[in-house]
Design a protein around this nucleic acid. Structure first.
Length: 292
DNA sequence: TGCCCCCTGCAG
DNA sequence: CTGCAGGGGGCA
């Protein structure tokens, strides 16, 4: 699923919906996706919710924590109460943005973990492809996991600079620029969609060896990354596929893609046709005319 | 650095 | 039917 904007939207939604609630029970329907002891989290209170790259850390009382990764198709959907569940489901559909029928009817066959809170509200973790996970940690232990410790700077922090990228690139000069910016240990949170969109914005070919990207182009790329991610946040994320926010609603960014998944169509600058190639095993979209 | 894999569904 | 999908770990 989700890249930085989508995970950020979900994180903000969770803060609003489940902060301070006490976990009454956890139901795990697919063991594969839940790592750790259920007893460690039952009875604990949610004390903070934070995004790291594309992961969500939920801190609990007594020093415990949950780390959730949604991978490609994970969803976290909140239902304010079980007793009025029918009404809420109807609201979601009436809201006009049910992404699929199965989103409006929870739990469903893609619901793998269910968090029941003391006040009767429920959080569903759905994942069509079962790549995602929920892991239980001690907060101290979590800080030292590779997953978090090795992450590069968040794109919106001052730590992401052209100088920083040049230093990284000097260690792997031949790597394609797209692979550099989608490496989570270089920049935290950029994935396939926003890499393509950012490179288009900066007029840089995703195939360019990183060492051939100049300082000023890197500067432009950083500002493009920020503007693209900001726009995605403002539009509620990209729901090209299964993304919905914690209320089950889709975002609109997919209607504003300049280049991603527009293979064969005209470049927005009318200079050529959008081409699709594979970089690092992922579909990659660019305009060979304006992206050099 | 480049495949293959995890898994399921959908578009062409 | 084949190929493709927002991620990323593991293996040669």
């Amino acid at each position: 699923m989700p890249e930085l904007p989508e995970v950020e939207i979900i994180t903000r939604g969770l803060e609003k919906k489940i902060w301070g609630k006490v976990i009454d029970k956890i139901e795990v329907r697919a063991d594969k996706l839940f790592h750790g002891s259920r007893e460690d989290v039952v009875g604990k209170k949610i004390t903070s919710i934070e995004r790291h790259a594309k992961m969500i850390e939920i801190d609990l009382s007594e020093g415990k924590a949950l780390l959730i990764h949604l991978k490609m198709t994970g969803q976290l959907i909140f239902d304010p109460s079980t007793s009025s569940g029918q009404a809420n489901k109807a609201d979601r559909v009436a809201g006009g943005h049910p992404s699929r029928d199965w989103v409006a009817d929870l739990p469903n066959k893609f619901t793998h973990v269910i968090f029941y809170f003391k006040d009767g509200s429920v959080l569903y973790f759905n994942d069509l492809r079962k790549f995602g996970y929920v892991k239980v940690y001690d907060q101290q232990q979590l800080k030292n996991t590779r997953e978090l410790k090795d992450l590069g700077p968040d794109p919106f922090t001052q730590n992401l600079t052209a100088e920083y990228l040049m230093k990284i690139i000097s260690k792997r000069p031949r790597m394609k620029i797209k692979q550099i910016i989608t490496d989570q240990t270089v920049i935290a949170g950029i994935g396939n969609i926003y890499a393509d969109e950012s490179l288009f914005c900066a007029k840089i070919s995703p195939l360019r060896p990183a060492k051939d990207v100049s300082r000023s182009e890197l500067q432009k790329l950083i500002s493009c990354i920020r503007s693209v991610l900001k726009k995605a946040l403002e539009l509620g994320g990209s729901s090209e596929n299964t993304f919905v926010n914690v209320e089950g609603q889709k975002g609109q960014m997919q209607d504003h893609f300049q280049i991603y998944r527009r293979t064969g169509q005209d470049c927005p600058h009318s200079c050529g046709k959008v081409k699709r190639v594979v970089v690092g095993g992922r579909g990659t979209h660019f305009c060979p005319v304006c992206q050099k």
